[in-house]
Design a protein around this nucleic acid. Sequence first.
DNA 1: TATGAATGAGAATTCATTCAT
DNA 2: GATGAATGAATTCTCATTCAT
Lengths: 211, 211, 211, 211
Amino acid sequence: MTASPAGDPPATCDDAPIERRRRDAGRTRHVLLEAARARFARDGYAVTTVRDIAEEAGVNVALINRYFMSKEGLFEACLTTAVTDVRRDENGLPIDGIAEGIASRVGSSTDDDRLRVALLLLLRSSGDDRIDELRRSVLSAVSEKMAAAAGGTDPDSALLRAQIVLATTLGIVTLRSSLGIQPLSSATEQQLLEPLRDLVRAVLPGAETPS
Amino acid sequence: MTASPAGDPPATCDDAPIERRRRDAGRTRHVLLEAARARFARDGYAVTTVRDIAEEAGVNVALINRYFMSKEGLFEACLTTAVTDVRRDENGLPIDGIAEGIASRVGSSTDDDRLRVALLLLLRSSGDDRIDELRRSVLSAVSEKMAAAAGGTDPDSALLRAQIVLATTLGIVTLRSSLGIQPLSSATEQQLLEPLRDLVRAVLPGAETPS
Amino acid sequence: MTASPAGDPPATCDDAPIERRRRDAGRTRHVLLEAARARFARDGYAVTTVRDIAEEAGVNVALINRYFMSKEGLFEACLTTAVTDVRRDENGLPIDGIAEGIASRVGSSTDDDRLRVALLLLLRSSGDDRIDELRRSVLSAVSEKMAAAAGGTDPDSALLRAQIVLATTLGIVTLRSSLGIQPLSSATEQQLLEPLRDLVRAVLPGAETPS
Amino acid sequence: MTASPAGDPPATCDDAPIERRRRDAGRTRHVLLEAARARFARDGYAVTTVRDIAEEAGVNVALINRYFMSKEGLFEACLTTAVTDVRRDENGLPIDGIAEGIASRVGSSTDDDRLRVALLLLLRSSGDDRIDELRRSVLSAVSEKMAAAAGGTDPDSALLRAQIVLATTLGIVTLRSSLGIQPLSSATEQQLLEPLRDLVRAVLPGAETPS
DNA sequence: TATGAATGAGAATTCATTCAT
DNA sequence: GATGAATGAATTCTCATTCAT
């Protein structure tokens, strides 16, 4: 992560030999984005201050405005990464493993798991309508893809059912991250898998292969 | 709501009928509480300003501090009403109609439906640990009651499954209230019932009578 | 104090038999004034709230405005009583016992000693120029009277010296009331007398009889 | 004070020479501290608003919180400077010139005399106990040092007497600064010296050399 | 590119005062 | 006369943002 690659300037400067990689716009942008993702996802937009983010990133506050125009711009960038994460994930989505997919996405415990954070981000709002529209469209797309995978006769009903499964996913992520409700909060991926399989099989009838 | 009692003067003067029933502490407390419930539930704690609430209630801002000590005190009062609402609702919960219960609670569309608002409030945090503990305990209690109703052999597994159903409920409420995702957002109680029945039957095996 | 004298109305009213002496304007004015004196003297004008005073007096806040027009009016009334107290005291001032007088005024320990409170009040300001002028004139008068008592050849120098003695008096009252500096704060009248005698004898040369 | 350094442009433009030396954190902190000292000393803690102070310092209000955390933090910083001033002054205190010392400290008339302001600050309270303890300890220390200088047989009595002299000092400063009582308020250092010599000689017997 | 000083708008809260009963 | 509900003007403090270096 912070390991300096080959292309660094030779350490000729003697005053600050320890600091690596200063004045690297790309890296600064990146650490800001990561810090922002984590805090926006965890605490929400309004509660999080730009100073919190900058401090967590180990970077000067003013750089947020420099690179992202505004706090809202930073949030939008976070959402964009979330959208990308979710989209990339969809492509690898195993057709006959929806329950497995949810369990693995939702069941991660490491604090900076990308997809879990992405889902939380999609639930946060900055109040800006344009950004909200982005959230809406992504969540809609996800449910559509899930409905398509599930098949079924009535496409309209399939979409509704897929959105209910999506609601379950988001609900689990929410409950696990904010309140520490047991046993849900500390359930492992394994423990979640069985009930989720039952759920998906029942709600999305066409989704299951006889596995 | 604003229904005027019997003794009101006939509404002949149109410029300033002014509000009837002024200088009524109980009523003021009440309208503040209702306004706060609505806004806290819809927008969250941090985003909502006390001035917003007071304006929505048609009341002077300082009265929030008079009656509830602080913004946080008002939020706590809102959560307490939410807890009461949820508890009262649990008692009337039909043993063999969990899916019906969820559908009716979640499917309401009127803006000030008490139980839907109560559920949203339970997802909002002011950051105060003591109040968060209240939220946690109520949501835990709800899932425990649901697990008990569902029966089943393994009580631990039953609780986890009940919490997944609770997650579905909260997820649906969230998706319906904030983003306008279709068809979920405008699905009627009737339309939600069928998939929810499938879901509950599958996730909470002991819960269903042969209906 | 609160014992009800003979002239009370016969206890015909049955609802509130315990409350004695309600609706007595004179008494209300009086308890407010006493409470205000105590708090203004102890804490100062700005820090003291009218609600504090009303509560201490066991009386509704609005009555302060009713009887004294405003917080400032109440303060002025307090100062007026302080002026009266000081004036009355001056008349009884023993010609050849200035030190004794100071010691007794300053050495009192009971919390509501009138003269000590009066002196503290004369050091407090509400910011109103007119009232400040009142404070100034009274303190000037006190020092003039002391200078006259002290006699001495040069009247101008005598006045300056008297004001220094007055400064000592006020300084002692201040130090004893706010900070708890030892041994000054808990020194008895007796203990203060000897150094004060030395001081007065030295600063106001004409003041002492061969006693 | 506003003395301009060498490199300044000649004062040809009269409308907006604007302030030189902007964006200097140390300077900003300093002007805030000085403005605060002056106003806190003159008007007291409660009466003085942070906006007053910031305006007097020609600086944005928010900087008070930036540099001193809070109004109370600023007050504490003021007191700390006052303590420093008093301590430094004590060291230079001439053993056999207590009266001279008081006269010079008290007799200054310029508005921003450090030691006079320091003494006034030590009489002001913000209501915070921790800060009050600081005030108390400093005033105690001053009186102890004075008692030690005075010598005398009974150390306990010497301390009480020293505190009476301190009371005189503080009383004179108070009377001179707030009310404009004559002749005390406009007495020069010279005029104060003679009576103060008499006072010190009488109250602190061991203090005087045969001068 | 990066820094940290400075700014102004807006937040919650307190408080003297006025009004209606 | 007395009560307590209501009001509006402050006050302190926070925060996103901009400026100067």
